[in-house]
Simulated assay, not measured.
Amino acid sequence: MALSLWTRLPILVFIAMAAMQPGSVAADEDPLQDFCVMGQQLHVNGFSCKDPAQVQASDFASSVLQNPGNTSNALGVAVTPANVLTFRGLNTQGISAARIDFAPNGLKAPHFHPRAAEILFLAQGTLLVGFVTSTPDNKLFAQTINAGELFIFPRGLVHFQLNVGDCKALAFSAFNSQNQGTSHVADALFASNPPINDAVLEKALQLSAEDVQRLRSLISKT
């Protein structure tokens, strides 16, 4: 799907803004993996670097976000990531992006990014977006946004995006991490490997044993 100049310019601007980092401070580097257990052999918190003599201009270009994703699934959404795993030129730059295609009524289910804040630019359509705070009152901040508008999701907070328009929607997100990580709430609870003990879910969510098994089956298919 070719993007108009009107669409491309704001995307470039907000990705550049997301890349701006405050000055260095005396602190540990942000983790780029879920964990890094100390061992006898060296394992870096990230990825090794290509020999500079072998680097070419093409290493800093990517067409990974050019084409729409397949939204023919239960949630009606497709996320195409442009992170260090799909665009090697991002390594050590502390930034990544993603394309999100929504079918009508498509949902990016509640999830969070443990290593990055997210800024979303809506290129076309209408989305209901929101996040929930980590404070005791679990305050919800939600708003309907239209094409050309931005919304920010703070780092580590559960958030969602729902297409509430009559047609497809297209959004682009930028993250202040080369590998932001994504944890979907439903998957983490009901599709973990190995499974969380049923008694934990039954008591924590006040569900019956039958409800837990039904949700496990449903979410594994989704």
Rank of each mutant, 00 (worst) to 15 (best):
P136N: 03
T71C: 11
A116L: 03
L9C: 06
D211Y: 02
L75A: 10
A82M: 15
N193S: 07
V44S: 03
A19V: 01
N138Y: 07
A82G: 13
P194A: 14
D137I: 06
N138K: 14
A57N: 15
Q66V: 02
K203Y: 14
L122Q: 06
P10A: 03
E118W: 02
I95Y: 12
Q54K: 10
R88D: 13
C36F: 12
S177Y: 06
A191D: 08
A61Y: 09
T133Q: 07
T80N: 15
Q33D: 15
S96H: 04
D137H: 04
E210W: 04
R88G: 12
I119V: 14
T182C: 01
G94W: 09
A103W: 02
Q180H: 14
V200S: 00
L215R: 00
A186F: 10
L157R: 05
Q178G: 03
L218W: 01
D187I: 05
H159L: 06
A186C: 09
D34V: 14
G148R: 08
Q213V: 11
D101V: 08
P104G: 09
Q143S: 03
A78H: 09
A103D: 15
S177N: 08
A97H: 15
N138P: 00
D211W: 06
S173M: 06
L218M: 15
V77N: 06
L85E: 12
P110E: 14
V158T: 07
H113A: 05
L162Q: 09
A204K: 10
A2N: 14
L189I: 08
P22A: 10
F175M: 02
F160Q: 03
D34P: 09
I119R: 01
S72I: 11
F60K: 13
L207E: 06
L205F: 09
P110D: 05
V79G: 01
P22Y: 04
L122F: 09
S220V: 10
A2G: 08
L3H: 14
S62A: 15
N176Q: 14
F153H: 08
S63E: 13
V79A: 01
F153V: 13
D28C: 02
E210F: 11
L157G: 14
L85N: 12
E149L: 07
V77T: 05
F35E: 06
Q178M: 09
D187K: 02
L85Y: 12
C49I: 08
A18T: 10
N67R: 13
P31A: 15
T7F: 03
A169S: 15
A98T: 03
F47K: 11
G148D: 10
G148V: 06
D166L: 14
L90W: 15
L120T: 13
N146R: 13
E210C: 03
L150R: 15
A103I: 07
T80L: 03
E202A: 07
A57Y: 02
E210Y: 04
I152D: 08
P154D: 14
Q180I: 05
E149T: 08
P154E: 15
K50W: 01
T126H: 04
S183I: 12
A57P: 05
P195N: 02
L120F: 06
S173E: 07
F172P: 10
V13F: 07
A53D: 10
E202L: 11
P136A: 07
Q206D: 13
G181F: 00
N83K: 12
F141P: 07
Q56H: 14
N138W: 13
G130H: 02
Q40H: 15
A142E: 14
A18C: 11
L65M: 01
L215D: 00
I100A: 09
H184Q: 10
